[in-house]
Design a protein around this nucleic acid. Structure first.
Length: 512
RNA sequence: GGUCUGUUCAUCUAAGGGUUAGGAUUCAAGAUUUUCAUUCUUGCCAUAGGGGUUCGAAUCCCCUACAGACUACCA
């Protein structure tokens, strides 16, 4: 590879559904790596399988990356010198490359039908074995290696369906220096003759990937560990094309595993364990099923990104809170671990809290806006900002601002029974009524100005402070939570404060 | 089954032959908050097992166990 070639990486998802958290982390690591090195980040849509295409998935991917702050330098929307960036639009290009491989003896035409191959597989299984299309079996199958040229040429001319397969060399050791896993090697005898070009005229992942990475001058391929087994094929393809000198370097990322149980994180886990696995909510167009998303659940994108960055990577210091800029500054591939990591929803929650308290009230209030709107609340933005500032420390998610502060916007509709039975004893409603009366006499209605005379009033009456404070809180918020009581009084106003006390006195039955 | 990869507290991880194996999350206890949450302090908890190599192993080697990925005309 050239010494001073600009670093270029790509994130190449296939639009078969919403991007999930694992894919997002792959995109993130690609982005961090290339930005750390001053390179470019490309988005390439790998939609070579028309049967699995899901409408909306591509838009989803772009929106999700955007929400997370992962900027794209070249892509379907952004354009770029290597456009198009959607493989379906590059279709015309791949056949020539497949042809080149056939001409050079690295690939061949195969005419076996899917049904024939299926039969071979089931037959092999019945005898306790497995069928693979490889150097030992291809001699007995229908392909351009077992036929004479005029014969297969005739089939081609007749329009018979065919695929192009890679002719895996015999007994060769293919080595790779993986940027994450170090030296790995494979023997080609264990590998099969992968299909490079399908009968529908589309390339498979392997061909399209190698061709496009080459054409787009990709310098580093950073992808999930599930691709490690195809490394030898890809290396052999670069060789066959004569592109070995500019072949990208590979880095295979460890997988993200389920929080509990076996296997890698999957769609279902979110529903079962109560956390999202997708950055944005997604409605499956085929089934109508709705999957929750981090954004809709009140997570902040920078908190999500921070959490994700530490899943499989660490800075080598004890720093844990990182902005995207700081991540870019610190990220190197050599600090990416080799073993899979379990996804931890608890830690994600903690990160989100950290970001919540760091964000400005203004910013948070803006994110909270849609949640308020959904509740049918229309209040001045300044009020939302003030409330946000008061309650954000006790929240983990943006939507919790509602749970922690709804009483600033409307009176409580019910009263926590536990607190009622604990506080609302004989005599308490009377005291509350007197307090309501007292509030009418307070001069300036500001938290700081209410507190002093209030304390004096309570003391003069010889009342128990704990009883009064907790009961008053019950009247105003409906339970035993929330910020400073006098702040609440000030914000909801004198009239409303009194009204809420009156109402509570009237409707809460005295506990025995 | 085969190939490849991995294995440090419950979880994310640090320690690239010499530390009482460190930090964070969770959990528990205490303090603060006349509420709740936050915050603070303290505590609990780990080198998968067995063999080597070495004065000395979480770290290097081998075996076993376990885990994961791949094994499609899907990516």
């Amino acid at each position: 590879m050239e010494n001073n070639a600009k670093i270029r990486v790509r994130f190449a998802p296939s639009p078969t559904g919403p991007l999930h958290i694992g894919g997002l982390r792959t995109a993130l690591f690609n982005y961090l790596f290339t930005k750390h090195n001053g390179g470019d980040f490309l988005l390439r849509i790998e939609d070579t399988d028309q049967s699995r295409y899901v409408p909306g998935a591509e838009e989803y991917i772009m929106e999700a990356l955007g929400w997370c702050g992962i900027g794209i330098d070249e892509g379907p929307r952004e354009g770029g010198i290597h456009a198009p960036y959607r493989q379906s639009e590059r279709k015309a290009l791949y056949a020539a490359y497949a042809r080149q491989l056939i001409d050079s003896g690295h690939a061949y035409y195969a005419f076996d039908t899917p049904e024939e191959l299926d039969a071979l597989r089931t037959n092999a299984e019945a005898h306790g074995g497995t069928f693979t299309y490889d150097n030992s079996t291809r001699v007995g199958l229908k392909n351009s290696l077992t036929m004479i040229e005029s014969e297969w040429q005739k089939l081609l001319d007749a329009g018979v369906h065919y695929v192009v397969r890679f002719k895996m060399p015999e007994n060769r050791v293919v080595e790779e220096m993986d940027l994450v896993r170090g030296h790995v090697q494979f023997n080609t005898d264990q590998l099969d003759d992968k299909v490079l070009f399908k009968s529908d005229g589309m390339p498979t992942y392997h061909l399209a990937n190698v061709v496009d990475d080459h054409l787009m001058e990709i310098t580093h391929v950073i992808r999930g560990e599930e691709w490690l087994p195809s490394v030898p094929l890809h290396i052999l393809l670069y060789e066959a094309f004569g592109w070995k000198a500019t072949m990208p370097q590979f880095a295979h990322l460890p997988l993200i595993l389920k929080p509990v149980g076996k296997g890698k994180l999957s769609k279902r886990d979110g529903d079962q364990l109560g956390f999202p696995v997708f950055p944005l909510a997604w409605k499956d167009p085929a089934t109508g099923e709705i999957y929750r998303g981090y954004r809709e659940d009140g997570y902040l994108p920078d908190g999500l990104i921070n959490m994700l960055s530490l899943l499989g990577w660490n800075p080598g210091t004890e720093q844990e809170i990182f902005s995207m800029e700081q991540l870019i500054g610190s990220f190197t591939l050599d600090r990416v671990g080799k073993s899979g990591s379990r996804f931890d929803p608890e830690k994600t929650r903690w990160f989100n809290h950290q970001y919540l308290i760091r964000h400005s009230d203004d910013e948070l209030a803006r994110s909270f806006g849609p949640f308020l709107e959904a509740k049918g609340i229309d209040v001045p933005f300044e009020l939302v900002v003030r409330v946000t500032g008061l309650v954000k420390e006790r929240c983990h998610f943006v939507n919790e601002i509602w749970e922690q502060g709804f009483f600033f916007f409307k009176a409580p509709e019910s009263y926590d029974e536990k607190i009622v039975s604990k506080r609302w004893k004989e005599g308490v409603p009377g005291m509350m009524a007197e307090i309501a009366g007292f509030f009418g006499t307070v001069g300036i209605w500001k938290a700081g100005d209410i507190k002093e005379p209030f304390s004096q009033f309570v003391t003069e009456n010889g009342w128990n402070f704990g009883t009064i404070m907790n009961s008053l809180r019950l009247c105003l918020v409906g339970g035993s939570f929330g910020p400073d009581i006098f702040e609440i009084c000030e914000i909801i106003g004198r009239e409303e404060t009194v009204a809420r006390i009156d109402r509570a006195v009237k409707i809460i039955p005295v506990a025995l």
